[in-house]
Nucleic acid binder design. Structure first.
Length: 190
DNA sequence: AGAGCGATGGCCT
DNA sequence: GGCCATCGCTCTA
């Protein structure tokens, strides 16, 4: 049994994307920058695998997706819709192109800094691009190790119930219930 | 409360 | 050239 509130180690991220997507619920994402620290409990995730037509890794390794094919425990940050970034946790062993998209957080620390970064005082982290902005994550964090350093995840026991269902904003593989969220949590997107 | 849509750029066919 | 793992504003109710 892992110690509560300890930093998730490299081994933890070697789990397959579906297992990891569920295991990350309740854990706390922490980012410390010169501006201060922000953190939030992960309340919504989505799994993407190599055999999955909705996954960026589906068409093989490219310059953009190469980190997905590396070992688990690194950040996959991608740019979308011309103006937003999303943050994924790479999962599984090296050679497998899979990752977990972090879709929503419940703010824990540094809510004031989140408000400043977002330029508003509501809807801080209830969506994948929103939480990236609130946490101060950028494209420079692409490939960054999450098992050490200023961007990491703390293990946390989750007492709440987990729900699952189809992923959001995709047009393929919509039958796969690979989106997981903390049941009833107000910060889940939608 | 919910639908419609514009902004804006990289990636893939 | 078309498609997006999005967000937030605006319009209608």
């Amino acid at each position: 049994m892992k110690e509560h509130n300890s930093i998730l180690d490299a081994e933890f991220f070697q789990q397959d994307a579906l297992t990891l997507a569920e295991a990350l619920l309740g854990c706390v994402l922490v980012h410390t920058t010169p501006l201060g620290a922000t953190s939030g409990m992960i309340v919504e995730t989505e799994a993407y695998t190599e055999e999955d037509a909705a996954s960026h890794s589906y068409r093989g390794e490219t310059e953009r997706t190469k980190v997905m094919f590396g070992p688990g425990g690194h950040a996959y940050v991608y740019f979308t819709y011309g103006m937003h970034y999303c943050f994924n946790v790479v999962s599984g062993p090296a050679g497998k192109g899979e990752a977990v998209l972090i879709r929503a957080l419940e703010p824990v620390l540094g809510e004031d800094l989140m408000q400043k970064r977002r330029g508003r005082n509501d809807n801080l982290t209830n969506g994948p691009a929103k939480l990236v902005q609130a946490m101060g994550i950028t494209k420079a964090d692409y490939g960054r190790a999450l098992y050490r350093g200023d961007l990491h995840i703390l293990s946390k026991p989750l007492t709440a119930t987990i729900s699952s269902g189809p992923r959001i904003g995709i047009s393929k593989e919509t039958d796969k219930p690979w989106r997981y969220w903390v049941s009833g949590n107000v910060h889940v997107s939608k």
